[in-house]
Amino acid sequence: MSNGLYLYGIFPAPGPQGLALEGLDKQPVFNQAIDGFVFLYSEAQQERYLASRKNLLGHERVLEQAMQAGYQTLLPLQFGLIIQDWDTVAQQLTIPHGERMKQLFDRLDGQREVSIKLFWTQDVELQMLLNENQDLKAKRDSLEGKTLSMDEVVLIGQAIERAMESRKQAIINAFRETLNALATEVVENDTLTESMIYNAAYLIPWDAELEFSRHVEALDRDFDGRLKIRYNNLTAPYNFARLERLGQ
């Protein structure tokens, strides 16, 4: 019994041509045209795919290879989507949401998504803060070897917390002020770990990536090794073409 068809993404017709792409479970990737849209798919070998690193990267690789081959405008589908027949796709997606999908293609034409994730080492930043603020350092040091009231402990802790938050916001604002002006659209996402202080995606003109990356490098130099910057310069535009927003 067939496990169905695994879907990767949607392209404007005629879609990717002549590409030998390998999908999940090393299956060949094919095109299917429906109502002026072209879906990339492969034969599903499992009823359900676990969101393992290997599978997630395999899904991403199909879309990135198509983009690198010149098929730059696409609507990426979320990982794990398996269908049993194309009629369902037509009835649930291309027929009711076709106009909105075309609008998304128009918006994404000539654009690419890049992303920034900023990480800091909190202990190092705290020590830098205290070195730069001797009054705060003296208050923090007063916690050691003395009997303080709970109110005093809380007040000192709050002062340090506010100062660290201000320090973090100054970093974030520097990136916003430099990079947001280069982007057509910006989406700020939740931070994923305690050490991650900023997580943003940018929609930029396809040929503006070199300039954008130079600004990222300049910001890295400005902060002189204080930050770990994870910059992704090629990714499917998940933040700007989310299919769950269609029809809203």
Rank of each mutant, 00 (worst) to 15 (best):
G98D: 07
L155K: 12
G23D: 07
G247A: 08
E194I: 01
G15S: 10
D25V: 01
S149H: 12
L192Y: 05
P12C: 10
Q78M: 09
R245L: 13
A51V: 02
N199L: 02
N3P: 00
I160F: 07
I172L: 08
L126E: 15
K139S: 11
Y6C: 05
G247L: 12
H215C: 15
V29E: 04
E113N: 03
D87F: 03
L182D: 04
T193W: 06
R112A: 10
M128H: 10
R48C: 07
A208N: 14
F175I: 00
T73G: 04
R48S: 10
D85E: 15
M101Q: 02
L118C: 14
D106M: 07
A90G: 04
S42E: 00
D222H: 13
E194R: 09
M128P: 00
G70V: 09
K137D: 06
V124E: 14
R61Y: 00
Q84C: 03
Y41F: 14
E132T: 13
Q111I: 02
R112I: 13
L108C: 03
R53C: 08
F11C: 04
E194S: 06
A159N: 04
M196Q: 15
T73P: 02
Q27L: 01
E113Q: 14
R242G: 07
W120H: 13
F105S: 06
R100V: 01
N233I: 00
E177L: 13
D222S: 10
I10M: 06
M67I: 11
N180K: 09
D109E: 15
D35N: 15
R221T: 09
N55K: 05
